[in-house]
Design a protein around this nucleic acid. Structure first.
Length: 489
RNA sequence: CGGGACGUAGCGCAGUCCGGUAGCGCACCUGAAUGGGGUUCAGGGGGUCGCGGGUUCAAAUCCCGCCGUCCCGACCA
């Protein structure tokens, strides 16, 4: 819809709005291969900043980066029974190489547990080799039936951490710790609040003992599984003979964890913060934090204003040396495009802060700063510009998280709810519903069939309701746990 | 794999019923004016009409076959 200047209204069709927003903000494009996407520089810039921040966090928690092969022998995948059952239906398989049929087909990794733990088995001999903490940045392939830009593509970029530990408790601590790292990242960097907790057996990773996840609420009140962390127990170490000699001399199987987040986060960012004018990117992740738009009529004015703008940008660069990290500022000096058109373009891309500067401003030694999140305009003196910009960026980052959290809570139901009412809610606007679960998988399945909602997680304590639910949402029998029920992407 | 729709310029579409010179909007290029929230005017470039076959003097249009995409279900980070 190149001639339609406004984005589709979210209320009418959030999915249509999402596709439109992603394409028009030039985050991604469709590729010639169905279900795969091309990430454009603007989208990759956001992902790159996510990558860097996460990588720093992984380094700080003692993990090292490594790289493992794209191809996995078919027999490897089959070594862990649940794992192959879970992933076999969605694998891409290479059967020919060099013009000849291969003796053993090669799977294009849907995830790397098998190849990584087969190597861990070579590297680990003693309890002194543990814990082994590895992360890899890679692309993986899962042959999904239905795809959506960023949220579910056949091929996607991600990070997968894989660790080996001497005891169950150490592995459990690691899985929980990395879930916390994800949560911190999503809230502090993405301004995207999440509910953490444990997955039910139905939603557990194929081959894991326990799966933990971060669930974020999108603007259509659906949940997005934004990151997962698994305690794999000894399932893979037994399948790949990953053993070590303990301090007491006995031979034992190691305990593994794995955890990952993907380019799906970029989609989550769009679905959390976007509005009818396009994206809203939190300052910490914005490839450009501040865009300067000069305003002028005549050529003389243009010369004068652009020169002044260049001076101001240089001044900001000078000032920024006192601030950690370089201020990412862009002067949009393109001629022949009216300022209004530039405003729309940068708003569409979600640049958090805009500076408008023209002859009238220069005469008053000021400029106008405009926040993308609230679109609030504020005249600002050029003398204190550095401090004001820095302060505004911090405030925008904070306010976006607060706004997202308020929206989530406004669409959460914690009061006791009947199943009929629950069905109405799920048929209507949807919500995060905190209600009891008896622990019976049959109830979970029945609800999924009837409403398409599932148990997203059994929330961690801090997310649970003040009063523990007493009855199962579906069967009304005694509740053994509180569950977060919602529709999901 | 079941149900529905579509395939015509970079994007969005009209034209198909009723066969007769390949069109529109946006984007792009040139020029001029304009410039504090999506500028205006004038000129211009760009398409084997998804692919293959058939009917016909003549096919985007009718017939047959194939391919592809999107939406709705089952699968999923």
């Amino acid at each position: 819809m190149a001639d339609d200047k406004k984005l589709t209204t979210r209320a009418q069709d959030f999915s249509a709005w999402y596709n439109e927003a992603v394409l028009r903000a030039e985050l991604a494009d469709y590729s010639p291969v169905r279900g795969c996407m091309v990430i454009r520089p603007n989208g990759y810039g956001i992902w790159e900043r996510m990558q860097r921040a996460l990588d720093d966090m992984f380094k700080a928690t003692g993990h090292q980066n490594a790289y493992f092969p794209l191809f996995i022998p078919e027999s490897f995948l089959k070594k862990e029974a649940q794992h192959v059952e879970g992933f076999a239906p969605e694998t891409a398989v290479v059967t020919h190489g060099g013009g000849k049929k291969l003796e053993e087909p090669l799977i294009i990794r849907p995830t790397s547990e098998t190849i990584i733990y087969s190597m861990f088995a070579k590297w680990v001999h003693s309890y002194r080799d543990l814990p082994l903490l590895i992360n890899q940045w890679a692309n993986v392939v899962r042959w999904e039936m239905r795809t959506r830009l960023f949220l579910r593509t056949l091929e996607f970029l991600w990070q997968e951490g894989h660790t080996a530990h001497a005891t169950h408790d150490e592995a459990e601590d690691e899985a929980r710790r990395m879930l916390g790292v994800y949560r911190d990242f999503m809230e502090a960097w993405m301004a995207m609040p999440v509910v953490t907790g444990q997955k039910t057996d139905a939603e557990r990773f194929a081959g894991a003992l326990r799966t933990y996840s971060c669930e974020a609420m999108m603007q259509d009140n659906k949940a997005l599984q934004a990151g997962t962390s698994h305690n794999l127990g000894q399932n893979f170490s037994k399948a790949f003979d990953l053993t070590f000699q303990s301090e007491s001399g006995s031979l034992e199987h190691a305990w593994n964890t794995s955890w990952g987040v993907s380019t799906r986060l970029v989609g989550g960012l769009v679905m959390t913060h976007g509005d009818d004018n396009g994206l809203r990117v939190p300052p910490l992740l914005a490839p450009i934090e501040l865009v300067v738009v000069p305003i002028y009529k005549t050529d003389e004015e243009r010369t004068q204003v652009v020169e002044a703008a260049n001076r101001i940008v240089a001044g900001l660069h000078d000032w920024e040396r006192r601030r950690p990290g370089r201020l990412r500022v862009h002067l949009d000096a393109r001629d022949g495009i009216k300022p209004g058109a530039k405003y729309y373009e940068w708003e569409l891309k979600g640049i958090p802060l805009r500076m408008e500067i023209g002859p009238r401003d220069l005469a008053k030694e000021q400029c106008v700063l405009v926040r993308r999140d609230t679109r609030e305009k504020r005249p600002t003196s050029l003398n204190t510009l550095g401090e004001d910009v820095a302060e505004l960026l911090v405030r925008v980052q904070e306010d976006m998280l607060i706004a997202a959290r308020e929206r989530r809570e406004a669409n959460s139901i914690r009061e006791r709810i009947t199943y009929d009412r629950f069905r109405e809610v799920m048929d209507g606007d949807g919500a995060f519903v905190y209600a009891g679960w008896c622990g019976n998988p049959a109830c979970e399945t029945a609800v999924k069939e009837e409403t398409k909602a599932t148990i997203r997680v059994l929330p961690d304590e801090e997310f649970r309701s003040a009063e523990a639910p007493t009855a199962c949402l579906k069967c009304g029998q005694g509740a053994s746990a509180e569950a977060l029920w919602a529709k999901a992407y």
